[in-house]
C-alpha cells in the first residue's frame, strides 16, 4: 500500500526561502538547501518549491536553487510559480526537478498541459488549482494570480479537463482554508475525489497534527501540503507522522 505523503512547501524569492502573508511583508526563513535537508531529516516525502516572484531573472536563480538542492536532497522535488512554457519546464527538469507545477499558465493556455505531458510524461506535470466556494453561484471557482483573481471557472470541471489533457497529479489549494489554521477543506476534497483519478495533494488550512489525520481519514487524498506551520517550526514532519501512525494511517 502506498504511504500517505507529507509535503512541506518552500516559498522562494531571490534564492532564499521567505514567508509572508499573502506574499507581502516577506520574512527571510533561510537557505533553501539547508531547509530542504532539514525537512529530509524530519521525514518529509517530497518538497514543493514555489517561486513567489517568478520573473524571468528569478527563474535562473530558481534553477540554481533546484540544482543545489537536488545534489544534497534525494526525494521528489516539484517546482511551481511562473512556469509558462515548455522551455521553462525543461529548465527546471534539467536543473533537477522531478515535476513542474502549472497554475495560472494552465488556465491561460491549457494546451501547455498536453504539450508538457507529451514531451516529459504525465508523471512530470502537476496542475495546481487554487479555489474557493462561491456562495452566489454555489460552486468552487478557480482562482489565478495567487488567489487574487476569480476566473469563474468551475474547479471540479477544470480538474476533469486537466486530467484529460494529461496532468499526472493535482495540487488543490482551498483559498477559504488557506491561512486559517482551521484544517483542510474536507468538503472540497470529497467533491474532488468523485472526479479525480490521479494522485491528489490537499493544501491550505493546516494548524495542527489532527488536521492531517482528518483529511486522510475523511477523504481519499494522497498527500497533504503545508508551508507556514513547518517553516515556523510550529509542527515538524516527524510529529505529524507520529500522530498519523497512532491513527493507523500508513506513512513512511
Amino acid at each position: 500500500m502506498l504511504a500517505k505523503r507529507i509535503i512541506p512547501c518552500l516559498d522562494v524569492d531571490d534564492g532564499r526561502v521567505k514567508k509572508g502573508i499573502n506574499f507581502v511583508n516577506l520574512r527571510d526563513i533561510g537557505d533553501p538547501v539547508e531547509i530542504a535537508a532539514m525537512y529530509q531529516e524530519q521525514g518529509a516525502d517530497e518538497l514543493v518549491f514555489l517561486d513567489i516572484t517568478a520573473t524571468n531573472e528569478q527563474r535562473k536563480t530558481m534553477a540554481d536553487v533546484i540544482e543545489r538542492v537536488s545534489s544534497q536532497v534525494f526525494m521528489p522535488l516539484t517546482v511551481g510559480g511562473g512556469i509558462r512554457s515548455i522551455e521553462d519546464m525543461q529548465t527546471m527538469l534539467r536543473a533537477g526537478a522531478d515535476k513542474v507545477s502549472l497554475n495560472s499558465a494552465a488556465v491561460n493556455n491549457p494546451a501547455l498541459i498536453q504539450q508538457g505531458a507529451e514531451k516529459f510524461g504525465s508523471q512530470c506535470i502537476v496542475v495546481a488549482i487554487d479555489t474557493w466556494w462561491n456562495e452566489e453561484t454555489e460552486q468552487y471557482d478557480v482562482m489565478v494570480k495567487g488567489g487574487r483573481e476569480d476566473t469563474g471557472l468551475n474547479a471540479i470541471q477544470w480538474a476533469k479537463v486537466v486530467q484529460k489533457l494529461g496532468a499526472g497529479e493535482l495540487l488543490i489549494t482551498s483559498m477559504d482554508a488557506d491561512g486559517t489554521k482551521n484544517g483542510f477543506d474536507i468538503a472540497l476534497y470529497q467533491a474532488m475525489d468523485e472526479v479525480v483519478d490521479v494522485p491528489l495533494i490537499a493544501s491550505g488550512g493546516v494548524g495542527k497534527v489532527e488536521d492531517f489525520s482528518e483529511v486522510f481519514q475523511e477523504t481519499n487524498v494522497d498527500a497533504g501540503l503545508a508551508a507556514s506551520v513547518f517553516h515556523f517550526r510550529e509542527l515538524t514532519v516527524d510529529q505529524v507522522k507520529a500522530h498519523l501512525r497512532e491513527q493507523k494511517v500508513v506513512v513512511r
Binding site: 500500500m1 502506498l2 504511504a3 505523503r5 516525502d45 504525465s122 508523471q123 499526472g168 497529479e169 483519478d197 490521479v198 494522485p199 481519499n220 494522497d222 498527500a223 513512511r252
Partner: peptide, 12 residues
C-alpha cells in the same frame, strides 16, 4: 478499486 495507476508514491 481504490488504487490509482500509475503507482506513484512510497511503498514498503
Amino acid at each position: 478499486e481504490g488504487l490509482k495507476v500509475p503507482e506513484m508514491g512510497w511503498n514498503q
